[in-house]
Design a protein around this nucleic acid. Structure first.
Lengths: 351, 351
DNA sequence: TTGTATGCGTTATCAG
DNA sequence: CTGATAACGCATACAA
C-alpha cells in the first residue's frame, strides 16, 4: 500500500512533519481566511479588514512563512530578481558597482542575478536570453558592447538600466559618467604642474569611455596651446600588461615625455612597473595619472593620482533607477561630476 | 466585450502573436505528441522512440523553444541554479573563484546566484535562507564564518560545497587549501635567503586560514632553529590599511627585522607602502612575501613574491564538486599543493 | 513506449 | 471587502 502511494501524496499525508516549506495555503488555514486574502495582504494589492490582517500576520509569524519566489514568478510574473550583466565578475572596477547594486537591492527584498558578458556582444545577448528565461523583473547592463538598438529592443519587454552611454528610450534609463571632463581634468592637472610632453595610453578603440577620455586629453592640450603629438599616444587595452607594454614601446621609440596619462588605473599600474624596470622614478622623473580610482590605487607605490569614478555610487544609482522604473516612477538621477584625486604619482616638473 | 476579457485569455486568443514565450505545450502540439513526451525528451527521463524524438527536436528548433526555469523549479523542484555565498562580491581574491564557478556552471546550463555574507555568520545565515527560498539546487559557501554545525544542518536539505575548512558530512564536500604548508613555504624561502629576523603580519584571529599560515611560519622558524620572537608578529586584518599600520607599529617599536611575511597580499601591499614612506627599499632593505598571488601582485612595485593560491581553480573545483553531488556521484577532488612564486620583493640578505 | 491527469505555490480574475 | 477558481509552464504518477 505505502509503496504504491505517490510521493507527493505521502508528503501531504503527514501534516506534522516539520520539513517541507510552509505554504501560503497553510497560513490561510490557520488564519481562517482564503488564500487570496493572504496574498493580498502580502502584496498590499487591496484593502483588507484590520481584523483579518492581524490574524494573517499572526499566522505568518507563528508558521514562519516565507513566500516562495519561484511560485510567485510563475503566477505573477514578478520574481523579485534583477539581472545584472557585468563584463567580468571579478573586475576590480565593476566589482564596486556590483556591491552598490547589491546594497541597494537587498533591503527591499530583491536579489541580483549576476552574469558576465566578457565585453562580447554575442555573449551579452546570450546573457539577456538567460536572464529573460529566468524571468528577471529588470536588467541592469554595466557598459558592455551591446548596440543601442539591441538595448532599446530589450527595453520593450523588460525595464533596462544601462551605464556607460547616453541613450533615451521608453522603459530604459542610461547613466553616464562624464569621461570627457574626466580626461580634461587629468590632463589639465599635468599641464598645471608644468608638463608639456604628456603621453597618453588609450584603452581599446571600441570602448566609448576610453575615446571620451582621449578627447578630454586633446581638448586640454588644445586649451593650453600645446600641439598634439600623435607619437605620444599609444594604444593600450585597459589591462596592466597593456600599460606596461605601452610604456615599453614609448621608451623604445625614444620618445621624450615627462608625464603619462593612462586611460585607466590598471594601465597606470603597468606603466609604473615599466618605468620602474627602466629605472625611471615616479613622480620625480615621470608623473603618472590614472583614471577610475580603484581601491588599490590608494595603496600602490606611489599612491596614484587619478580621476575618481564613483563605481559604488554608480551601482547604487543604477539599482535605484531600476527600482523606480519598476515602481512606475520616472527616474531622474545624475552621477557625481568627475573629480581629480591628487596623490603622489604626479608632481611639478622640475626645471 | 474586449474590455472585459481577462488579459490571459486575450493572450491565448491570439496564437499568431509573435510575443509571449514559446511553451512546451506548443512544441508538443507542433510535434503531435503529448507534453509529457516533450518533457521526457528534454530531461532524458525515459526512452522515447527515435521517430518522435526527431519530431520534437525539430519542433523545438523551429519554435526556438527554451524551457522556463521558473516553471521547472515549481514543478520539478530543480531550478538549475546554484547559490554561492561569497563574502564580498568585489573581493580581489574570491573574485577569481566566482569566475571559476561561473565558467564551470555556465556550459551545463546552471546559473549562479551570488550573495555576500560579509564575514558575518548572521548575514550568511540569512543568505542561506534567501537562497533556499529561491530553491537553488545547491549551495557553495566560500569560507566565511558559519559554524560547521550550521553547514551540516544545511547540508541535510540541500547539497553543500564549502571551501576553507576540512569537514565531513553527508551531502557536503569541503575543499581546503593547505595554508599551513603555504605558510611554511613562504617563511622557509626567507630563511633560505639568509633572513633570521622575519616579521609576521597576521590576519584577524577568527580566520582559520590566517592562523594556519601563522602556524606554518612558526614551524618553519622552528625547523631552522630560529627562536620565535612574539615582538615580531603583529596583528593585521587582511586589508591594505592594516598591513600599513602593522609595519608602522613595528617601526615605531624600533623592532629590528630584515624581512616580512604578510598573511595575504593585500596586507603586503600596505606593508610595502609603509616601508616606502619610511624610505626603506624592498627588497634591498626589507624582503617582503605575501600570500594569495592576486592578479595585481604581478604588477605591483616591486612584483610580489608570494604563495600562489589557486582561486580560480578553487571555484572550478567547487562547482565541479557541486555538479557531481547533484549527479549523485561522490566527488573526490583535491586542490593543487601550495606553490611559492618568487618575484622581486624578496632577495638574499646582504651581510 | 506514450498519453492523461494532477499538482507545484502563488497571483489574478471575477462574482459575490 | 472577500472567496472561489483558473491560470502560470512544466514534471511526475499512473493508466493504457
Amino acid at each position: 500500500m505505502k509503496i504504491n502511494m505517490p510521493v507527493r501524496a505521502m508528503a501531504k499525508a503527514s501534516p506534522t512533519r516539520s520539513k517541507g516549506p510552509v505554504t501560503l495555503e497553510m497560513v490561510a488555514q490557520l488564519a481562517a481566511v482564503s488564500p487570496s486574502t493572504v496574498s493580498r495582504i502580502l502584496n498590499g494589492t487591496a484593502v483588507v479588514s484590520a481584523l483579518k490582517k492581524k490574524a494573517v500576520d499572526d499566522a505568518i509569524a507563528k508558521l514562519g512563512f516565507v513566500p516562495n519566489p519561484v511560485a510567485r514568478g510563475l503566477a505573477g510574473g514578478r520574481t523579485l530578481s534583477i539581472g545584472v550583466i557585468t563584463q567580468a565578475i571579478d573586475s576590480p572596477f565593476y566589482g564596486a558597482a556590483l556591491r552598490g547594486i547589491e546594497d541597494e537591492l537587498d533591503p527591499v527584498g530583491y536579489s541580483a542575478l549576476f552574469v558576465s558578458g566578457h565585453w562580447n556582444a554575442a555573449v551579452e545577448a546570450r546573457c539577456i536570453d538567460v536572464l529573460r528565461s529566468r524571468r528577471v523583473d529588470g536588467i541592469i547592463v554595466l557598459t558592455g558592447r551591446l548596440t543601442n538598438q539591441a538595448l532599446k529592443t530589450c527595453a520593450k519587454n523588460v525595464p533596462v538600466v544601462v551605464t556607460g552611454r547616453t541613450l533615451k528610450a521608453p522603459g530604459l534609463v542610461a547613466l553616464n559618467f562624464d569621461n570627457f571632463v574626466g580626461g580634461q581634468l587629468a590632463t589639465r592637472h599635468l599641464i598645471e604642474l608644468g608638463h608639456r610632453q604628456i603621453a597618453f595610453i588609450s584603452g581599446d578603440a571600441e570602448q566609448p569611455d576610453g575615446v571620451e577620455r582621449f578627447r578630454g586629453y586633446c581638448a586640454a592640450l588644445d586649451a593650453a596651446n600645446i600641439a598634439f603629438d600623435p607619437a605620444l599616444v599609444v594604444q593600450g587595452g585597459f589591462t596592466e600588461a597593456s600599460g606596461l607594454l605601452a610604456v615599453d614601446r614609448l621608451l623604445e621609440a625614444r620618445q621624450r615625455f615627462t608625464a603619462i596619462f593612462a586611460a585607466n588605473d590598471q594601465m597606470a599600474f603597468g606603466a609604473a612597473l615599466a618605468l620602474y624596470r627602466h629605472s625611471l622614478r615616479v613622480p620625480q622623473d615621470v608623473s603618472l595619472v590614472g583614471f577610475d580610482d580603484l581601491l588599490t590605487s590608494l595603496h600602490v607605490i606611489p599612491p596614484l593620482t587619478t580621476v575618481h569614478q564613483p563605481a559604488y555610487e554608480l551601482g547604487r544609482l543604477a539599482a535605484t533607477a531600476m527600482l523606480q522604473l519598476l515602481a512606475g516612477i520616472k527616474p531622474s538621477l545624475e552621477l557625481p561630476a568627475p573629480r581629480l584625486i591628487e596623490r603622489e604619482s604626479s608632481c611639478r616638473l622640475r626645471d
